[in-house]
Design a protein around this nucleic acid. Structure first.
Length: 114
DNA sequence: ATTCTGACAGCAA
DNA sequence: TTTGCTGCCAGAA
């Protein structure tokens, strides 16, 4: 894969199923840089300049906080999108975060294994 | 080239 | 449970 680090992030984020959320650390870890979670967030910011849509609203920090809601242009839009997908959001936080948490290291590896 | 910033994560209090 | 400090990586000026 000669693609950029960002591109890998976008592809992975796009793999996140509807009604699920993921974290920067999980993505960074999947990409091999479990310490570069900040770069993942940075990639998300750049994702707005991409032609392809990236469900950045499905990406929250490990506390389940909608850290990037402010970057959606309209604060509350991110939460609205999540709610629209069935993810309960309250006070900029994801309810049952662990239940909605989608870990690429697990989901992609288990591949349907309950 | 150097310096700063940034949608984070982990640990300690 | 939250808050504060530190460390990491990549991009911009």
């Amino acid at each position: 894969m000669d693609e950029d680090f960002f591109q890998r992030v976008y592809e992975l984020v796009r793999l996140i199923p509807r009604g699920r959320v993921s974290t920067y650390g999980a993505i960074a870890s999947y990409l091999g840089s479990n310490r570069s979670a900040r770069v993942v967030g940075w990639a998300m910011n750049a994702s707005f300049s991409k032609d392809e849509y990236v469900p950045a609203h499905r990406i929250v920090n490990r506390k389940g906080l909608l850290s990037g809601k402010q970057h959606f242009g309209t604060a509350g839009l991110m939460a609205q999108l999540l709610k629209n997908e069935g993810v309960e959001v309250k006070d900029d936080r994801v309810l049952d975060f662990k239940a909605c948490f989608w870990d690429p290291n697990k989901e992609l590896q288990a591949n349907g294994s309950v």
